[in-house]
Design a binder for these strands. Structure first.
Lengths: 143, 143
DNA sequence: TTTGGTTGGTTTAGTAATAAACTGAAGGAG
DNA sequence: CTCCTTCAGTTTATTACTAAACCAACCAAA
């Protein structure tokens, strides 16, 4: 193996570790922050997706969040019970949308959460943040 | 709120979503890949840290991985039982190191895993990967 | 018309992680 | 000496997630 090749490999592992560390740290702080409104990071994720893409199916939600449909079933069960989300069945598919309570929560929690996430990246300049976004987008692009 | 300020906030949220999506996707593939050697992503993480920083305490390991010490206790229990890691108690602290089996596993699994992680970032050029690493490092820097 | 595939959702068992409360040992201050 | 704090690790209950098996409904092809 060439020196270059070796460095390239080490780089991949370093990137992975850095990214994983930042993620775990960040999600912990996020959960802590969202406690104030009685929801978790994943619930917030769902609230936003359902709020933005109204009447989407569970499968579509799973695809957007990159999680399994099994996970969606469980999360929605809970959020339905909490009265934030409603399911409307048509044929065999279930369409999701926010209840009034859910919509109110959305309006209340999104602005401070935007603020909070902005702060988590505030060690980077706006220019650097844009760069980071470009790199992340590129990483996920389908072949 | 100014237009700029608003964009800055949206940027933070976008960054967070992108990063989270990449992470969940990536860790799933990693787990899948590591199945071949019968270990999980988190176990690999621990194997590497203990392999590199020999004889570190559980608390130090927790700090390196950005997880709670409770999590470390549980993970180490399992990996001790699997015969990969040994604990040596001195006073009240427990020092971790790899067993011979653990060291053998380390040697076997690290190279292909480096290869695998390199591939996960291969949509970026080497230059871009270095940039990404710099940005991630900056994000985690202590004040 | 049966048969078999595809699709949306559910269930279940297991893994990783957390927060918070706890144990037990040291080490210091009065 | 006793009390108090701190520190390393453990325990417990809970959340989020996965993979894999499953169910039910529709659809198409033979």
């Amino acid at each position: 193996m060439t020196e270059n090749n070796h460095h390239a490999k080490r780089l991949g592992l370093s990137l992975w570790f850095r990214l994983a560390r930042f993620y775990t740290h960040s999600i912990r702080r996020t959960n802590q922050h969202l406690k104030e409104w009685g929801l978790s990071a994943s619930q917030f994720d769902i609230l936003v997706q359902v709020g933005v893409h109204n009447r989407l199916t569970q499968q579509e939600l799973a695809d957007k969040l990159f999680v399994t449909k099994g996970n969606v079933t469980q999360m929605i069960n809970k959020m339905e019970q909490l009265g934030w989300i409603k399911r409307e069945q048509e044929w065999k598919t279930k369409y999701l949308s926010l209840t009034d309570t859910g919509a109110a929560l959305y309006k209340e929690v999104v602005p401070p959460q935007e603020q909070f996430q902005a702060e988590q990246f505030s060690k980077l300049t706006t220019e650097e943040q844009k760069q980071l976004l470009i790199l992340l987008r590129k990483l996920q692009k389908e072949d």
